[in-house]
Amino acid sequence: MSISSLSSSFSSLTLKPSNPNLHGNPTTLHSSFIPFYKIPIPKPLSLPQSHSSAPISATYEAGVGVMGTKLGMMSYFEPSGEVVPVTVVGFREGNIVTQVKTEATDGYSAVQVGYRRVRDRKLTKPEMGHLEKSGIIPLRHLQEFRLEKVDGFEPNQRLVFDELFKEGDLVDVSGTTIGKGFQGGIKRHNFKRGLMTHGSKSHRQLGSIGAGTTPGRVYKGKKMPGRMGGTKTKIRKLKIVKIDNELRIVMIKGALPGKPGNLLRITPAKIVGVNIPKN
């Protein structure tokens, strides 16, 4: 086919509008015109959400726990003559269930426990109202123990340590460590010091902290001098050596966080395959 025949065929081709009312009628064209900002935007597809999601076992405690006060450390002699370093934990008035939370009322299951009785003027009016709702004495500390089931717990129920734990049980103890202020790299991160002789000019300095041109900066998380201690920590799987109901104390093997007088949170130890599923 030649170029002249193609041009003649295109010249004879006429375009017809899809809507006959719009042809040759500018008024109709203006009335049926829709601006782009008025065009409805289709809504995104919403996927069905599953409400039966399995709970994450790591967020749950292995059982309800108690709060105590660190008294200090001492040496305990086993009947066999072995010397065991222990931390003595005492219990003031408290460890009372102040609230029981369920899936129906709060969306999750937990037991709130109060510890250490104080005067009324030491608490705010909202705190006093929360405790007076269940007829509970004024308590300084309130903490929650999230459980899968809260059957058998009720407000104003007193928790006794020897009923929850036995000698030989393993517990997890959490508390606030002793604050040591601003410290250098040797004390804070156990760095080695430089030579003290032979012209060394780097005794306790940090040393090189990175390259110059590349990357030209210090990476985040670099171990450097800074504030040490004063943070919350948890020590796991500590053994209960002795429970003395007369003195209202318990001896736990090893060192616990904080100084004497520090608040401690004692819970049953999480052991995979025993009270936590392997998956």
Rank of each mutant, 00 (worst) to 15 (best):
P85W: 00
P85M: 02
P85C: 00
P85Q: 05
V86S: 09
V86Y: 12
V86K: 10
T87E: 06
V88Y: 03
V89K: 05
V89I: 09
V89A: 05
V89G: 09
G90Y: 06
G90S: 09
G90I: 08
F91I: 06
F91N: 03
F91E: 03
E93H: 00
E93S: 11
G94L: 01
G94H: 02
G94T: 05
G94N: 01
I96R: 01
I96H: 01
V97C: 06
V97P: 12
T98N: 02
T98G: 07
T98H: 07
T98W: 03
Q99S: 10
Q99A: 13
Q99M: 11
V100I: 08
V100E: 01
K101M: 14
T102Q: 07
T102Y: 01
T102R: 03
A104I: 15
T105V: 14
T105F: 04
G107C: 08
G107D: 04
Y108W: 10
S109D: 10
S109T: 13
S109A: 10
A110D: 02
A110E: 07
Q112N: 11
Q112D: 09
Q112M: 08
V113K: 04
G114M: 05
Y115A: 07
R116T: 14
V118G: 00
R119A: 03
R121N: 06
K122W: 00
T124N: 10
K125T: 13
K125C: 04
P126L: 03
P126M: 03
P126W: 01
E127Q: 15
E127A: 14
M128S: 08
M128K: 07
G129F: 04
G129R: 09
G129K: 08
H130S: 15
L131H: 00
E132N: 13
E132S: 06
E132R: 15
E132D: 11
K133I: 09
I136P: 12
I137A: 02
P138S: 05
P138W: 00
P138E: 01
P138N: 03
L139G: 06
R140L: 02
R140H: 01
L142A: 10
L142F: 05
Q143H: 11
Q143S: 13
Q143P: 00
E144N: 15
E144Y: 07
E144A: 15
E144M: 12
E144D: 15
F145M: 08
F145D: 14
F145V: 13
F145R: 07
F145G: 14
F145W: 12
F145E: 11
F145A: 09
R146H: 14
V150R: 05
D151M: 04
D151F: 05
D151Y: 02
D151W: 08
D151Q: 11
G152L: 12
F153T: 12
F153Q: 08
E154A: 11
P155T: 04
P155G: 10
N156Q: 14
N156E: 13
N156P: 06
Q157Y: 04
R158N: 07
L159C: 13
L159H: 06
L159P: 13
V160M: 14
F161A: 12
D162E: 10
D162P: 15
D162S: 15
D162K: 07
E163K: 14
E163H: 13
L164H: 01
L164T: 05
F165R: 04
K166G: 14
K166I: 02
K166P: 10
